[in-house]
Design a protein around this nucleic acid. Sequence first.
DNA 1: TCTGGGGTCCTAGGACCC
DNA 2: TCTGGGGTCCTAGGACCC
Length: 415
Amino acid sequence: MQAEPIRRIAHLDMDAFYASVELLRYPQLKGLPVVIGGGRRREDDLLGRLAQAYPEQTWTQDDLAAIPLDFFPRLVGYTGRGVITTATYAARQFGVGSAMGLMKAAKLCPQAILLPVDFAQYRHYSQRFKSIISDIAPVMENRGVDEVYIDFTEVPGGQREGGRVLARLIQKAIFDDTGLTCSVGVAPNKLLAKMASEFNKPHGISVVLEGDLQPLIWPLACRKINGIGPKSDEKLQSHGIRTIGELAARDPDWLIAHFGNKTGTWLHHAAWGRDSRPVVTSSEPVSMSRETTFERDLHAVRDKAELGAVFTRLCEQVAQDLQRKGYVGKTIGIKLRFDDFSIVTRDHTLPHYTDSAQGIRAAAGQCLKRAPLAKRLRLLGVRVGSLISAQDAKLLPSPLETPPHDTNALLFPDD
DNA sequence: TCTGGGGTCCTAGGACCC
DNA sequence: TCTGGGGTCCTAGGACCC
């Protein structure tokens, strides 16, 4: 009789992904503190600056690696509302890291090189490393641009050394093709694999087996559990629970009493390393949105024109996104962030599905009328939810849009 | 010198229907 | 006078993740 294969799930996380992709283009930055973020500013268009300094020459993408270091903009003197999306390991030495405001980072490491984000480039490398993985191990779940879960269970060789051999193979295949490194954790499930991938960063492999729960997982802070954020962690700490082991020691009924049935039960299972979620290879989007933070806070009345223009543009962008990806939605929503960082949302569900900028703009405009507008606005967002594919929408009994009045249909109803 | 943008999922109350 | 309960959809807010 054939033995049941042991479930082996991997979590693969690219190391400092955005920054590492930039380093492929600008190898001269290797080992230096580099920070990706900001965006908005165009003065860091390097080829443009190069052309300005040496107008007699033509500069192409092939010359990027030759750009001298002093052409790169530094963090020093940065003003604006941007945040760091990724920092190189050299930059992290200075205490800067993801989600930190660039102005704060400029204080900590003024000499760091600042590069704007280039999503097209990251998406390209994202597709490349993911296709390498799925060629080797087809059961792969996307978790954003730089992360995936992989089910090793049924992959030939996936059981050798608890998954380490296959992890090594994938790591090498990605590096050989892209020059990028990643970290992999292999464990009995997604929860533990996710934690394991962090053990040996960068360019590490960690294997967690059933028996490793107590020595490897229980000493960790609860915050290391994917799903326990700052709020839950604070609440746990207020009850004297700091480590996963301390969480595991609590009676499940006590957890349910304090965190509710669902969360309480989940916390208990998580602490005991139990997680039966499958690796899901495909999923449908639930919503699409566009939002923007203004350079300065805007006043609903005084900056009405500017606000209106941004509002319309956001609606057009969401509509474009929907159309490009082939979806329609019927719940239109807005999001406002005020100068005090409080957030208000309003939404409205239409009787029909839409992907038109005008339709979205009209519904979003109605939502805006229901929102409080006394405080200054920092951010405005537009969202379309309750999505279905445009194909499926065609099969619906109710029309996609309110149809134009067609007199012929009335005259010839059976045609 | 505070704090981006794009998502998912959950909760909770109210409307409405059976 | 009294009085159910379940199910679904909608809306608003919030936690969390990458």
